[in-house]
Design a protein around this nucleic acid. Sequence first.
DNA 1: GTATGGATCTTCT
DNA 2: GAAGATCCATACA
Length: 191
Amino acid sequence: MIDFSRPVVELALDLLGATVHHGVTSGRVVETEAYHDSEAACHAHVGLTPRTHVLFGPPGRAYVYRSYGVHALLNAVAEPEGVGAAVLIRALEPLEGIGAMQARRRRDRLEDLCSGPGKLTQALGIELSENDTELASGPIRIAPREGRDPPPHIAGRRVGITKAVELHWRFCERGSRFVSKPWPPGVARPR
DNA sequence: GTATGGATCTTCT
DNA sequence: GAAGATCCATACA
């Protein structure tokens, strides 16, 4: 089992290589970002609101919210209840249900299916109604990776934020073709 | 190949 | 009324 109550940066590393299942589709996590209420980029930084109460709730639940009015983004709530923290799942390597993903995404290339936080929710069919569901028993499930240690990875700046950009809380599996872009400055793109 | 702007909605000012 | 943890089509080099 994954211990979602761990410190959020540790959990972000723990989720690299884990598998996300939803319906007939699944994918291997190759990119994550950590968010914590102590830093300004986190939604929970503003405190407890109707939007952020899931982040402050018990660990191991899904926080799904709408981004830019268009996309659903999937997070795993971390740290003990009362702390607002979550790991954003930013990219997956498609494993099962690839035909369904291709149909939902209207794209054929595997690299175009889950290489971004809005893309993977579309590919897996994850919706806002699944906000605040249990990751152990709900529609979205996350299975731990094989092996104890995280795969080789690169830490860098988080993407698409303007606050707390100095924190290197983004983790990419080294060498994966399925991570999102752009790459953070100063990090060579693997191929 | 890079650059730009539109879509569209929840939250907070 | 503005901003935002994004993606994609289009324009141009």
